[in-house]
């Protein structure tokens, strides 16, 4: 079941679209904000509320890279792996992150703190290599900068 709060937030979005199912992306992001990720149960809850089948909704959910169908850590690190960042040293940045967090891309660190995911160009190519942590963009990265940045996340 969706919580009252989730329902209220989704309902507020309904007026932005001509048809109810068009709210589904926003609805999934709302529930994801509350629950961290979208379990099968969450997909069922949302689809019921919007009058879609769970399968219909899941085919949308699984299309998008930032709708999480698996649990993620407290902070999500998106590492830009597109061309400008690649030219400017993406490999080194990724290697350093992997070593520091002791995880591979797609994994979550042991204490559930960070999830490491690839992302396509984040429009910070003039400050490549760049990453996003939660909502914040960090550019012109090197190994020591990454250490400083990671230290800010509790």
């Amino acid at each position: 079941m969706l919580t009252e709060e989730e329902k209220k937030e989704i309902e507020a979005e309904l007026k932005e679209y001509e048809q109810k199912n068009a709210v589904c992306i926003e609805a999934m992001k709302i529930v994801q904000r509350h629950r961290g990720w979208l379990s099968d149960e969450a997909i069922r809850d949302i689809s019921e509320f919007l009058g879609m089948t769970p399968e219909e909704l899941d085919s949308v959910a699984t299309f998008y890279s930032l709708i999480f169908r698996k649990p993620v850590g407290k902070h999500v690190i998106l590492v830009c792996d597109s061309v400008s960042c690649w030219v400017m040293g993406y490999d080194k940045i990724l290697q350093h992150l992997k070593t520091r967090l002791a995880i591979e891309l797609g994994e979550t660190s042991a204490e559930g703190k960070f999830t490491l995911l690839p992302v396509a160009c984040i429009g910070a190519c003039d400050e490549a290599p760049a990453i996003i942590i939660d909502n914040k963009v960090y550019g012109n990265l090197d190994e020591s900068k990454i250490d400083d940045i990671l230290a800010q996340y509790k």
Partner: peptide, 11 residues
């Protein structure tokens, strides 16, 4: 949507 790699003008 600006996701074309190398592009950062709309931002």
């Amino acid at each position: 949507d600006e996701m074309e790699p190398g592009t950062f003008k709309d931002r």
